[in-house]
Computed example of a mutant assay.
Amino acid sequence: MNTIATFDRISTICSETVTGHYSTSFSWAIRLLHKDLRMHIHAIYGFVRLADEIVDTFHQFDKEALLDQLTQATREAVESRISLNPILHSFQITVNQFDIPLTLVEHFLRSMRMDLTKTEYTNHTELNAYIYGSAEVVGLMCLKVICEGNSTKYNQLAPAACKLGAAFQKINFLRDLEDDASQLKRQYFPGVSMQNLSDDKKRQLENDILADFKAAYTGIMQLPAKGRFGVYLAYQYYLALFNRIRKRSSAAMLEKRIRVHNIEKLAILLEAGIKHRFGFI
């Protein structure tokens, strides 16, 4: 006889499938988390991907209506503790189990809504608000899971989690500068476009990202053991991508999308595994 546990498990599998299909890097990193945490990080990623697909992919549909539906359905799922949408059902399990503040979810959805109409960020105050909602709060949701109810540890590490989320998002912006402008008609970095990106401007952006990375690393090393290895691996993946970006000239940045190939990801995984095995992580 089927029970609610059956639906819970199916919903978890759906979130895991979404993660695996859309991001091999995060899938590998999540596998290195403790088994108690994996399904919940998959749940967060699955929810985030739903919203991201609405604003970035579903061009032939009414995006605003779809985002309204998702916002309402998410609120109802968390309040009622069930959803017929498996992705939202697995997400509400995580939100309720780890007492993730709904304000974080609302900030995320607010930033996604900005992508529907806002095409340019003219100052860093606007950009920082967008990054907080689109990336930093996702890091905070994951941190709530990793800290497993330890509020003191969560509050201690929250600033570093935000810096890691910001670094990841800024790298995405820099890597996808051409795609964002030509396909989505968006310009995230104030005063920086495909037409005026210079080596000097690129270096300034990289220095800002590097500062975020350094602040994030300190926090990663203080994470609870269950979550440290997986987060460290995600950090290393993005650091490898960042280093590839730094080696490219501003002109070359626009010629071909930069990515970290699977063989390099495997090397990063093996190196991280050795460090973890001997207690360096």
Rank of each mutant, 00 (worst) to 15 (best):
G219Y: 01
L210P: 00
V145S: 08
K201R: 14
F189D: 12
I171E: 13
A135R: 13
T152P: 00
C147Y: 03
S151Q: 13
K226T: 04
F168G: 09
V192L: 12
A158G: 08
D180S: 05
T152R: 15
A161W: 02
I171D: 13
I146V: 14
Q187M: 12
G191D: 12
G227Q: 02
N172H: 09
K201G: 03
E126F: 02
K201N: 13
Q222F: 01
D176P: 05
A135M: 04
F173V: 01
E206T: 12
Y132M: 07
Q183A: 08
K144Q: 12
A211H: 11
D179W: 08
F229G: 02
M194Q: 15
G149Q: 13
D200G: 05
L205W: 07
K202H: 10
A167D: 01
T125L: 05
Q222G: 06
N172S: 06
L140N: 09
K226H: 06
N196P: 00
K170Q: 14
A215Q: 14
E178P: 01
E206S: 09
G219E: 03
C162D: 02
K202I: 02
H124C: 11
I131E: 06
L177R: 11
E120A: 05
Q183D: 07
L205P: 15
I131A: 05
K144Y: 09
I171F: 01
D212K: 10
Y188R: 06
T119R: 15
M141Y: 04
N123H: 14
R175F: 02
Q183P: 06
P190S: 04
S193C: 10
L157R: 10
Q169M: 04
I209R: 09
C162R: 15
F168T: 00
R228M: 09
T218K: 10
R203P: 11
G227P: 07
P159R: 07
V137P: 00
F173R: 11
K202V: 03
P224N: 10
V138Y: 05
K163M: 07
K185P: 03
L205T: 08
Y217F: 12
S198C: 11
E148A: 15
P224V: 11
K144R: 15
S193R: 15
T119V: 01
L184M: 11
A158S: 15
F168M: 08
K185R: 12
K185M: 11
D200T: 14
F173G: 05
D200Q: 14
K153D: 08
D200S: 15
T119L: 04
N123L: 00
L184P: 15
